[in-house]
């Protein structure tokens, strides 16, 4: 296995640690995109993030990948800390598996990503208030429209 694959596997394992024990194996083992959507989103996007962290941190690729992961974690039974914790885990994973890597530069990128993750987490929670409001508007839209039209 290439080092990067090994890092990804270890990182994934760290990211699912937040879930109840019985679920960890399912999230890890089941590869079907539709039978294991949570694991799939996590795996796909961690791979993108890893490439970017070891590479150039291109925002147009980093941001959507991070968003996809956080969006899932923001609605699950996780605290804010647990939702973003996986980002920090990368530092030690890389430290263990690829000690030759420039820890300082990676550390900076991880910090940057972590800050983005916090932002995204807050955005998701805010989004939930917004969609909640929109839903209640739609639920009574006809009477509201009638009132507007003076019907």
């Amino acid at each position: 296995m290439r080092t990067e694959d090994a890092i990804l596997e270890r990182w994934f394992a760290r990211a699912v640690e937040a879930y109840p024990g019985e679920t960890v194996r399912f999230l890890t083992a089941e590869r079907d995109q539709f039978r294991n959507p949570v694991g799939h989103v996590l795996r796909e996007n961690l791979a993108v993030l890893l490439r970017e962290l070891l590479g150039g941190m291109e925002p147009s690729r980093t941001k959507p990948a991070l968003e996809a992961i956080i969006r899932v974690r923001a609605v699950q039974e996780l605290t804010a800390t647990q939702a973003v914790e996986f980002v920090f885990a990368l530092r030690s994973v890389v430290g263990e598996l690829a000690p030759e890597h420039d820890a300082l530069s990676l550390g900076r990128k991880v910090d940057q990503l972590a800050l983005m993750a916090f932002d995204e987490y807050v955005r998701c929670r805010e989004k939930m208030y917004e969609i909640r409001l929109n839903e209640s508007r739609r639920a009574l839209s006809v009477p509201a429209a009638m009132a507007r039209m003076g019907s």
Binding site: E22, T23, R25
Partner: peptide, 14 residues
């Protein structure tokens, strides 16, 4: 197989 699966798969063990 049926026995090992029960022991091996965490969900089933649960």
């Amino acid at each position: 197989y049926l026995l090992l699966r029960r022991l091996w798969d965490l969900r089933l063990r649960y």
